[in-house]
Design a binder for these strands. Structure first.
Lengths: 146, 146
DNA sequence: TTCTCTAGGTTGTATTCTACAACCACATGG
DNA sequence: CCATGTGGTTGTAGAATACAACCTAGAGAA
């Protein structure tokens, strides 16, 4: 097998290994905030006033899934839905104080976990790894999302 | 934020993005073989004669989960369970012909998908990316699996 | 040998995430 | 003013998973 294929197979295998573990690990670390909830919360923090449809498109989730996720987060008082005055169909999303706090806390603990795993990497490697992941995910998004 | 932290945050974010998509993508690409089934099948191919408990330990899954997964794969005639003659409690796992064939086909199509996304990477980058993922996952395994 | 404890697996039950389909409310362009 | 489209919710169903209770078989102790 040519080295290209070898590398690709490794990438495939290792990314898959990561994906397999991610959900369970996230759940174990933060029983209060699933991986998806965390992602949604982060997204809302980044783009206050975004809509459920944006989230669905961005994460390739069904709108019903997003709707329920948001409903849960609202029940937990982590996000707020406000009707958009410009379009009564739309509900714009904002973090509550509790949402901001919870997100900060979980983000910190996630970062700490990553830091433990990546602590002994030198800076150049970290930067390159980050770059590769960005590039990979960008290619993924560009795809017809297969 | 120091560049180290910046890189770590990117790595965290992008790995998470990948993980979020992986299951759905796998399901869309191969309705006949979920991500977990694929993983189990690969494992059995790599280590013919392994036991359900091995799988559970390796993938941090409950033994009941593995039991049902294997039951499903057996129903689909992709794996075989044989009682270990040395220990009647144990069932050793082997791929069937159909299992081998299906796995090969799905693996090829997965590889093709990766190749499409990684096709324009140069060989050195691929090798480095693969190396980083291996290193990251190794650190993960070494962890107390937090 | 027999009894107890442990390990491998299965089954019952409940939860969570997810998709698909049907639906409602509002908006927008003829 | 109506037809069509968009944002969102609800009903329903399926998959993956965990936990707990259980069964069977091996292993070691009394």
């Amino acid at each position: 097998m040519p080295p290209r294929d070898q590398s690709m197979e490794t990438i495939q295998r290792e990314l898959t290994a990561f994906a397999r573990r991610a959900r369970a690990t996230a759940a174990r670390m933060h029983p209060e905030l699933s991986l998806v909830s965390f992602t949604v919360l982060s997204h809302v923090e980044d783009r206050p006033g975004c809509r459920a449809t944006d989230l669905a498109a961005h994460y390739m989730l069904d709108k019903s899934t997003v709707s329920r996720q948001i409903a849960t987060l609202e029940r937990l008082d982590l996000v707020e839905r406000r009707v958009d005055p410009d379009d009564q169909r739309v509900q714009v999303l904002h973090l509550t104080e509790a949402g901001t706090a919870t997100l900060a806390q979980v983000a910190a603990s996630r970062l700490a976990a990553f830091q433990e795993r990546l602590g002994d990497w030198d800076e150049a490697d970290l930067a390159r790894f980050a770059g590769y992941l960005l590039r990979y995910n960008a290619a993924y998004e560009a795809d017809g999302r297969p």
